[in-house]
Design a protein around this nucleic acid. Structure first.
Lengths: 218, 218
DNA sequence: GAGAAAACTCAACAACACGTTGAGAATGTT
DNA sequence: AACATTCTCAACGTGTTGTTGAGTTTTCTC
């Protein structure tokens, strides 16, 4: 699956904002320009301090015109978020179905996720903040993470069935949920530069914790 | 340590807002009333949708008067956060120095933390959001969590010295950091009702993960 | 308890961001 | 060319923010 870049027009799926426009038209460029501007601005300041004016100016249109494309600033974040969700899912699901040895799978999952946080950090953080206010986005994102957790739990259950991992409690789902949230927060903190020792050391730590949590029987 | 309740006047330390007032004066009641109003409102809606007007009205003063006490809405959250930080530190530090067996210590730490998230959830979530914008609050909170992590790491190192836990890598500090962030995110999600299966089951899951992470040698 | 200082109150003002409206220009379709 | 759709934006109304300056009340000091 092509990893759709930010700013590139997404013609694979109907637009997330089912609002006014229908067919593939010219002003799609402007919509993309707004998203691109949001992406750019997000890298330098938190979402709450980006005004519609800046977004519009960044896309080369007037503030009023902005509202033709998006109903609100939050909707822009929502659109970016939906666009990133696939990428994030794949970061976890691909290694899980690779058939490689457990230790490598875990390492890949963790590495991939932290990698996404490195590049999409500002967006993911904004989304986290937005999800508290926006019920739609919260539901959407909840379903994404639920899928990821379910897949992870299935992998744990498979290991348990093979006898390589001890049976619960905790249930595989609970374990998967906890680990996924561990990765999430770790990535979040890393993207803020709040982690002790960068990159590979963090991957290693998370991988060890995961291996012990799944295969240990403390 | 007396667990200072919200709305109670804090005369133990100089006011966080070193702005205008000095001695212990009458209007302290109003300041407390604002904090109490913030606390109350926070329980029903996210910080971003609470207006200064509501805060002032909740405290029985005019909007302009609000600015006599706090320079901004964020400062109110900051004040509440500082007030809660001790409580949160103690939730972790007390069990660690209790001398009880490891498994019980871990369970207490986790239980205490989740308990705080249950009662202070809306505030802690607001703080998380605020910390991204406010450098002061971020630094303050970072020092709090750093202390907690350090204490946790010291406990792990003690176990390692006793030979009951395997030596690193990962370093005890990295392990403590990861576990603390796991608890944080778990509490965060729980306070949003986004966790699978409530209370005690979550405590159990986190306790198991912790025990395996510290004592396992996967 | 009189007078001064400090603490406190608030209406009015200015600045800003938001979202809407309605009139028009550009683009596409027949 | 005539028509419909897409796109643009100035102008407006609204709500929230933070400041100012003039007042009232409380507290302190003698």
């Amino acid at each position: 699956m092509p990893a759709l870049e930010i700013g590139q027009v997404d013609d694979r799926t109907p637009p997330a904002t089912v609002r006014r426009r229908r067919g593939p038209r010219k002003g799609d460029l402007k919509e993309a320009a707004i998203l691109e501007a949001a992406w750019r601005l997000l890298a330098e300041k938190p979402i709450t301090s980006i005004s519609i004016d800046e977004l519009a100016a960044g896309a080369g249109i007037s503030r009023s015109s902005f509202y033709f494309y998006f109903p609100s600033r939050d909707a822009v974040i929502g659109a970016l978020a939906r666009r990133t969700s696939e990428d994030l899912s794949m970061a976890v699901l691909a290694p899980l179905s690779s058939g490689r040895p457990p230790r490598e799978v875990v390492q890949s999952v963790v590495r991939n996720l932290l990698d996404r946080w490195q590049t999409h950090g500002p967006l993911l953080r904004s989304m986290d903040a937005l999800a508290e206010r926006d019920a739609d986005l919260r539901a959407f994102w909840h379903s994404i993470t639920t899928d990821i957790v379910a897949a992870y739990a299935a992998a744990i259950d498979a290991e348990r069935a093979r006898g390589t991992a001890p049976a619960g409690p905790p249930q595989a789902l609970d374990l998967a949920w906890a680990l996924t949230n561990l990765y999430w927060r770790a990535g979040h903190q890393m993207s803020l530069g709040q982690d002790p020792g960068g990159g590979e050391r963090l991957v290693e730590t998370l991988a060890v914790v995961t291996m012990r949590a799944v295969y240990g029987d403390g």
